[in-house]
């Protein structure tokens, strides 16, 4: 049997991960193997949502996901470029609403909303968008400005 390294597509770029340990988490692969620090490490127990990324378009806690199980999958992170129209839309809404303070939870909020918008598109209701943020904690904003961004996304849904 020939060894084939795990492959991922990260933000549209194909990466090979030779020597990947079986127990490495996606969060650590992104941050320390690929040097992509945009995805933040918070609690590492799935309680804060700061590490949320998209896997195959679906929002996923990278701290609870083993990289090896994602062979061949597409991963989208907060570093994705403007070619990702959904993430760009969420960014614009957050920027216009000033929906961040320290910014540590921000990548997780953006990716959680992007995942739901990608899944539900124009049909996403306000409740569905709210529900998508149920696992994201923010300590600075009191969520108020984030909800203003969310309302903008909801009203502006294509």
């Amino acid at each position: 049997m020939t060894y084939r390294p795990t492959r991922l597509e990260v933000n549209g770029r194909s990466v090979e991960l030779p020597g990947l340990p079986d127990d490495e988490r996606l969060l650590d692969t992104l941050r320390w193997r690929l040097g992509m620090k945009g995805t933040k490490e918070g609690c590492r127990t799935g309680a804060c949502g700061a590490c949320t990324v998209l896997v195959g378009g679906e929002s996923t806690l990278s701290c609870l996901t083993l990289t090896k199980e994602l062979d061949g999958r597409a991963v989208t992170t907060i570093e994705v470029g403007p070619e990702d129209a959904v993430v760009s839309r969420v960014r614009s809404a957050f920027s216009a609403a000033g929906a961040l303070q320290c910014g540590y939870c921000t990548p997780g909020f953006v990716m959680s909303l992007a995942g739901r918008l990608r899944e539900r598109g124009a049909a996403a209701s306000r409740e569905e968008l709210l529900e998508a943020l149920g696992g994201n904690l923010c300590r600075c904003t009191g969520y108020a400005s984030i909800l203003r961004a969310l309302d903008q996304l909801h009203r502006g849904a294509p």
Binding site: R31, W32, G35, M36, K37, G38, T39, K40, E41, T77, I78, E79, R91, F94, S95, A96, A97, G98, L100, Q101, G103, Y104, T106, P107, V110
Partner: peptide
Amino acid sequence: APIRPDGEVKLHGAALYGTDLD
């Protein structure tokens, strides 16, 4: 002026915190 002058850097994952130093 944008509400948050640090919005762009933080919304692109480009802000490096203490945990990100390497």
